[in-house]
Design a protein around this nucleic acid. Structure first.
Lengths: 186, 186
DNA sequence: AGGGGTTGTTAGTGGTTAGTAACTACTTCC
DNA sequence: GGAAGTAGTTACTAACCACTAACAACCCCT
């Protein structure tokens, strides 16, 4: 297997490990075992655990942003909100990406991690703002629902039968954002 | 110092430690050093690190929920939304509580942690639903803004001068929730 | 004065972990 | 056939960390 292929494989597996246990909780030993290679080789390929973590995080953010971008296509305004929201929502199907994002936020106590996450947050914000053309308040709302979705993934809300869990699963209709646009346009 | 006082002190300091580094990243050694006691005594008082973490998490959630409750007082509907939102927003002043919450979500890979967090999420949902009398969609929106605030605390958004950071700081006016109430009442 | 309870310490243990150094096996190209 | 590069290993270290057991100092009560 080429080093590049191996790196790909490790990034996929590491996403699972980090999603479950976070930067500090995950172990390179366990990762190597799952990949069927020696632990030393992980360090050969990525240098440090943090570097591996950062690559995993960047991948997760990039995929989500590009996925939303691709889903939005040539739509605009409320249409893109609906379509992007749907995409993000479907991300709950594979919880790993959302959990990695959550772990990235949680690891922001480390300045190096924080800078990377800020950068991707900026890209995410810009992507939705550009695509929808909506004012900051609407973009903020959209992002807020995204962050709630991260938490929903962590709590595995689909496995809970309770008032609050049903409430969190309630789909938002895109009309909400129309209202925000009208009210807050300047 | 009585054992009870000592426990209080440790819970305060541990909140800082866990907020910065999470369940796995924080060390009882560092905590004990900051408190000026031996590390062994921490275990005498709390049994395990996870037990300490759970107490810290419970404290943070309970304070936030009770704070919102107290702030809401005898208001109802949109008024309580405004007042509770204001309280939650002011929580950004002391980032520790919000960060502890975020670390709690991130540590939900552990079933024991997850159960505790779910329980507090239920209480939080019930508190806002009861106080405001608003439909699930509105409560969901309120909670979503709260989760975004957690992330804002992690990214230390007040220290960033950029489009997205200003956008996240944009205050939401309570009128938004009126709209949600009208549209989604059944 | 002394016994019991409470607050604390010292000293250690077993296990884990990130990271390193040195070596090996295989392929490819001249 | 050998030189060079690439994928990978073994074996190790130094540090850290959660947790334990045994002991000590102090205070209050009778």
């Amino acid at each position: 297997m080429s080093a590049q292929q191996r790196r790909e494989q490790l990034l996929e597996l590491a996403a699972d490990e980090f999603a479950a246990a976070g930067l500090h909780g995950a172990s390179t030993e366990a990762l190597a075992r799952r990949a069927g290679i020696s632990q030393a080789y992980v360090f050969r390929l990525f240098g440090t655990k943090k570097a591996l973590f950062l690559q995993v995080v960047q991948r997760a953010f990039t995929r989500l942003i590009e996925g939303m971008d691709r889903a939005a296509g040539h739509t605009s305004g409320a249409d893109s909100i609906a379509v992007m929201g749907g995409y993000y929502d479907r991300a709950l199907g594979d919880r790993t990406e959302l959990l990695v994002q959550l772990q990235a936020f949680a690891a922001c106590g480390d300045p190096e991690v924080r800078d990377v996450v800020r950068e991707h947050m900026a890209r995410m914000w810009a992507a939705t703002a550009d695509h929808t053309g909506m004012p900051p308040v609407a973009v903020k709302s959209f992002v807020a629902y995204g962050m709630l979705l991260n938490v929903a993934a962590a709590l595995d809300v689909d496995d809970v039968d309770a008032e609050w869990a049903r409430g969190i699963r309630t789909r938002i209709h895109a009309g909400l954002f129309d209202h925000l646009t009208e009210e807050n346009n300047q």
